[in-house]
């Protein structure tokens, strides 16, 4: 028998495979390596954001500010590089530090003043978005040799597929977060906090450090995603990533992470992002379907997975 906690993960994986096969039979060129690498390239920043969201949701919280932090980080990069002529390698660490501090501040408000995560991060979303638009309302283009160099870097894969450098970077981040979540003490603390806050405190989990660390991590990753986004579009724009927090939450839940916290896998989030991406791809290939079906399909999936979680939870507490 398969452990109950793997059921949502398996469901997502099977859906992904089914979509891929169905798409492959229906459309030429759907089931190709290129589509897979494109999925990764087009969703790289979403995946990075969703990884941070996974940590937050695993701990029983929520972070609504990520989309806005992506935009803020992108705008900061673009403005500093294009208007102030800073070197990107100087800008990136600065942006990452700002992002991390921003998250740590939100975490502090949540932990020290016992404010609800959703309202604090909602305010964070306002703040980051507002700051981004205040810095620049227009989209700011980036022209720098480093950007061209990175854009051209990559590996050729068999079947005429191309593995761009952003995907390589993405895999590195994924690996790091995977290790952090599943192989470090801090990762254990995240699960502990999400399982039962009170018990975790009684068992000696450093609550302040863990809570603040989780939100700092989420904002760090969102800032990182913002940098990735500038490589994707060669610009920074204050209105990028509107609604991205919702996509990230959806990906995390579809990836089998329990919304109440304490259970889930980093790999699941990868599968969730891929599944959402493949739904979009399918609709593009289909051509006649309105792209808004993707939203509705994702909403329905989200509902089914939440309902599934409820059912699994209920049977596990009764059994």
């Amino acid at each position: 028998m398969i452990a109950r906690r793997f059921i949502p993960l398996l469901a997502t994986f099977s859906l992904l495979v089914v979509m891929f096969i169905v798409g492959g039979f229906q459309f030429e060129g759907f089931a190709s390596l290129q589509v897979v690498t494109n999925l990764l390239t087009d969703n790289a920043f979403l995946l990075v954001v969703a990884l941070g969201m996974t940590l937050v949701i695993l701990s029983g919280g929520i972070d609504l500010s990520v989309g806005a932090v992506v935009a803020l980080s992108g705008v900061l990069c673009a403005v500093l590089i294009s208007e102030y002529q800073w070197h990107p390698l100087l800008v990136f660490p600065l942006v990452l530090v700002i992002g991390t501090l921003f998250g740590a501040f939100m975490g502090t408000l949540i932990y020290v003043y016992k404010l609800q995560p959703f309202i604090v991060t909602l305010a964070g979303m306002f703040f980051a978005r507002g700051l981004a638009t205040t810095i620049s309302e227009e989209s700011v283009g980036i022209e720098h040799s480093l950007y061209y160099a990175v854009a051209d870097a990559g590996f050729a894969l068999p079947g005429n597929a191309w593995l761009p450098s952003s995907v390589i970077l993405l895999l590195v981040v994924f690996g790091a977060i995977f290790l952090l979540t599943h192989f470090s003490r801090f990762g254990g603390y995240i699960y502990a906090v999400g399982g039962n806050r009170q018990s975790a405190a009684l068992m000696g989990v450093p609550m302040a450090r863990t809570t603040i660390g989780i939100y700092a991590m989420s904002s760090f990753l969102a800032a990182f995603a913002g940098i990735l986004y500038t490589f994707y579009t060669f610009s920074g724009y204050a209105l990028t990533g509107i609604g991205m927090e919702l996509d990230a939450i959806a990906a995390v839940v579809i990836g089998g992470t329990l919304l109440t916290g304490g259970s889930g896998y980093i790999v699941g989030t990868l599968l969730g992002v891929m599944l959402m991406g493949i739904i979009h791809t399918y609709i593009i290939f289909e051509g006649t379907l309105n792209s808004w079906w993707a939203r509705i399909a994702i909403g329905l999936l989200l509902f089914i997975f939440i309902a599934l979680q409820k059912v699994l939870n209920r049977s596990s507490t009764r059994g």
């Binding site: 604090v120 305010a123 979303m125 306002f126 703040f127 978005r129 507002g130 700051l131 638009t133 205040t134």
Partner: peptide, 14 residues
Amino acid sequence: PSKLNLLIKAIAVV
């Protein structure tokens, strides 16, 4: 700038 709006709202909520 009208976008200051968001900043002020955020600070007000907190």
